[in-house]
Design a protein around this nucleic acid. Sequence first.
DNA 1: GGCTAAGCTATTGTTGAACAATCCCACAAG
DNA 2: CTTGTGGGATTGTTCAACAATAGCTTAGCC
Lengths: 240, 240
Amino acid sequence: MGQDVDLARPSADDTLGRLAADRDLLGRSGTAQRVAEVLRDRIAEGALPPGTRLSEQALGAALGVSRNTLREAFRTLVDGRLVVHEMNRGVFVRTLDPDDVNDIYAVRRALEGTGLRAAATAGPVHLAALHAAVAGGEAAADAGDWPEVGTADLRFHRALVALAGSPRLDEYMTRLLAELRLAFLAMPSARALHEPFLRLNRRIVDLLGAGDTAGAAAVLERYLDDACEMICTAMRMDGA
Amino acid sequence: MGQDVDLARPSADDTLGRLAADRDLLGRSGTAQRVAEVLRDRIAEGALPPGTRLSEQALGAALGVSRNTLREAFRTLVDGRLVVHEMNRGVFVRTLDPDDVNDIYAVRRALEGTGLRAAATAGPVHLAALHAAVAGGEAAADAGDWPEVGTADLRFHRALVALAGSPRLDEYMTRLLAELRLAFLAMPSARALHEPFLRLNRRIVDLLGAGDTAGAAAVLERYLDDACEMICTAMRMDGA
DNA sequence: GGCTAAGCTATTGTTGAACAATCCCACAAG
DNA sequence: CTTGTGGGATTGTTCAACAATAGCTTAGCC
């Protein structure tokens, strides 16, 4: 059997420290939070398209949770803007309009611009995540896995914000992209949405590696303008 | 009596349009949301200091609401970072540490910087709110009403972010400042916290009026550095 | 004394049922 | 074609119950 080791005593290999890092992974979360996560996923993947009414009875029966627990989960989703709550009518999966998309991209400009400016002062160490995301996107494109290209794209831009080193900005960005997925659903194909931007992401990370922050900012600006425009026109065509 | 007008027919004066703008003012909110607002206020004013445990039974009895409704309200507060939820232990009013304060001010730099950059392009019309907030703060200082100086300060910086014209950034800022109030509670006096910054706010709005965006940004930077430093040292003294 | 283990109690987590309030729809009346 | 009027379904909210957990108390042991 294993040796007799006193875990309370400090040791060379930091077993306890590594264990502590997994503490939040244990997900002592509660049913409501788990339900919220499930619904978030289903909304993001389009299984619950915008406008869908989330009936308490039907969802509660389907998920095997009580109405009260479900209503707790709804609160979280409302705060994340994924769902709207109309009094005495129920909750509905949110439908974004072009104004929403424009605002979301305005926030992206603010957040990702902040990350970019932070990249100037931060060392080149933090660029590893950016490189990884770009490489992952290109590999997925070669394999024809367009949904994966999409998630790699989001990962890249989340890593861009992460350059600022702010947990709160990271969370804002995560929530914002979750909301943005509601707009992606209006796009006919994931390929048309993400393929054109593979090269721009590559360019951004290259310019950043070369220390050309201003150049990277210009490319990023163009990325955001183009993507916003593309989604808005798709939404207008879909709405008409 | 009034004339016989058909509201369904389009008319020159847009009565219906103005009525529709008041739609959300009707505040059909529900108990849970109102409970959350009450708790938010009590936390902000220090009646429920950081670390306080919010017992479901006690609070439910005090507010006259059921445990389930209270738990719905708690979800909203958790998402706003005003309280923390520890599984099977309950919810507690959040206690901020210096790391939190530093991060909050990092986000403020990003948000208010965005507003400032937008001020360059936006017309001088939007500066009215800034002027009003500064004037209000100075008047309150003359009257010795230091709490009002504090709210005027927050109003000024919220108006600064509003220059960007983004509803989402506005909401981020509102939530962020609500969280920041938790740190203000560690300060011994509202006067010491807000008085030194009256002049900086005045300077910022003056420089903005003169079109000197870079100068305003520099003053803002100093404001944020000083305020963050002041709060962090106060917290360290309080904690030790 | 100080440490461990078992047990008790209060609180939270979650459910199910109940009732009032509200909305939506269909249908009748003017 | 608009305006009432039911009826049915759904939400808003409460209450009561039970399981699960955390924290305290107490007993026991070296």
